[in-house]
């Protein structure tokens, strides 16, 4: 295993930013998606593992800091020179002599930006600049904290496609923090759900989905007709504009889908929807916490 976190507590002043009571283990080749609302403790977790913030508890690892690569939420560089010089210095190499770096620059279509200063790059170019260098580190453990935040939909999609494609078949462990559930569906095989500095759950994506959503879910628009039509089925919590129905087995799923087809209702079927899964995980967590408080 790469990292073990036990009884971690991070405090900013009197406020507890993160509290992890059950051990969390990051193993080689893991692809961990970290989700949670603002202030959930996602970036604090990354900073704690990287040793960039003070904490109580134990984070044990055989990795030295240089074996962890990180694309942080905010990545700034000096603007006194062209990014080419920054890249060559940070990676301690020369672009013209490094085939792998040339490939990455070309893969991310960054050739035209090498002569520009960092402040002159667009948001997407800035993200690609850091990603290229983080990938070049080829670290056993790599963090991507909000790698696509602030980018438009198309740029986000393209960037994620390239990231997914690049890491396919590679054994680097990744910890990906994101607000975008669809990105994690593509990249992560384990999910860590955080809420107000506490761990809601941590397991494989598949097991968490089974635990909170069942075998599969069917999602449709939240209209009066659809609510009436699906009232016999088990509803899950979902964003206001949607209805999410849990199907515990194939028969139930078949029955629901046949009904929807018969009534000509549009729907989406999923067995890995992280958004619905996390909403219901958080709900159950709050209920259990409330129950414990009442007791």
């Amino acid at each position: 295993m790469l990292v073990t976190i036990e009884n971690l507590k991070v405090q900013y002043g009197k406020q507890t930013a993160l509290s992890i009571t059950e051990p969390i283990v990051i193993e080689e080749g893991d692809r961990i998606g970290v989700i949670g609302s603002n202030g959930a403790g996602k970036s604090t977790l990354v900073k704690s593992i990287l040793g960039l913030t003070s904490y109580e508890g134990v984070i044990s690892t055989h990795l030295i800091p240089e074996q962890m690569a990180a694309h942080m939420q905010f990545n700034e560089y000096v603007s006194t020179m062209a990014v080419k010089h920054i890249m060559e210095t940070l990676l301690n190499t020369k672009i013209k002599n490094n085939q792998k770096l040339q490939e990455l620059i070309s893969y991310f279509e960054f050739e035209g930006c090498l002569g520009k200063k960092y402040q002159a790059l667009s948001g997407g170019q800035k993200q690609r600049f850091t990603i290229i260098m983080v990938m070049m580190q080829n670290a056993p453990l790599t963090f991507y904290d909000e790698v696509t935040s602030g980018l438009d939909f198309e740029t986000r999609q393209k960037l994620m496609e390239k990231l997914v494609d690049w890491y396919k078949g590679k054994d680097n462990a990744l910890v990906v923090v994101s607000h975008y559930y669809e990105e994690l569906e593509q990249l992560a095989d384990k999910i860590l759900i955080l809420e107000k500095g506490e761990v809601v759950d941590f397991c494989t994506q598949k097991d968490l989905f089974q635990k909170y959503c069942g075998n599969a879910i069917v999602i449709l628009d939240n209209t009066i007709e659809n609510r009436e039509l699906t009232k016999e089925f088990k509803r899950l919590d979902a964003p206001n504009h949607l209805i999410a129905i849990s199907c515990t087995d194939g028969k139930e799923e078949e029955k629901l889908i046949s009904l929807l087809i018969e009534k000509n209702v549009n729907f989406k079927r999923s067995n890995n929807d992280i958004e619905i899964m996390s909403i219901n995980a958080k709900k159950r967590f709050q209920e259990e916490k409330g129950g414990m408080t009442n007791e």
Binding site: L52, P65, Y77
Partner: peptide, 16 residues
């Protein structure tokens, strides 16, 4: 100025 932009941190994360 560099510290305010977290530049030394990035250098450290790249192994310096």
């Amino acid at each position: 100025n560099e510290i305010e932009k977290n530049v030394p941190l990035r250098m450290r994360l790249f192994g310096y």
